[in-house]
């Protein structure tokens, strides 16, 4: 599997930091820091999400959306296992 992957943002709710149809170039890794933006598998739904890391431990991370008024994130689904993490965003093309 390639260490780099590309995803396309499919909606608007991370605007203005991530806009719909932006391309995200990510490094497949489970090493990241608080403040990084990561792509991960939703903990109980069958799709991938992009969120910002608010906290991280050895096994789990706590993620939140940039628009905290409406974001569904670790405040509702709890900390997420690092096994769910696909990678960290290196840069976006938009």
């Amino acid at each position: 599997m390639l260490p780099i992957a590309v995803f396309k943002v499919s909606d608007k709710s991370m605007e203005p930091s991530l806009k719909e149809n932006d391309y995200l170039i990510i490094l497949r890794t489970r090493k990241f820091r608080v403040g990084d933006t990561i792509v991960l598998v939703h903990p109980y739904k069958d799709f991938k999400i992009v969120k910002r890391v608010s906290g991280v431990s050895k096994k789990e991370c706590f993620v939140t959306g940039d628009n905290k008024n409406v974001s569904e994130d670790s405040r509702s689904f709890g900390a997420v296992s690092l096994d769910n993490v696909i990678g960290r965003i290196l840069f976006k093309v938009g």
Binding site: V6, K8, V9, S10, I49
Partner: peptide, 25 residues
């Protein structure tokens, strides 16, 4: 140019979508 290049690649490779959404669309 870079975005248009990725757009061309996307039409070929169909990059996977990722949702920033508050709830599932």
């Amino acid at each position: 140019f870079l975005y248009r290049a990725f757009g061309t690649l996307d039409r070929i490779a169909k990059f996977e979508k990722v949702y920033a959404h508050c709830d599932y669309p």
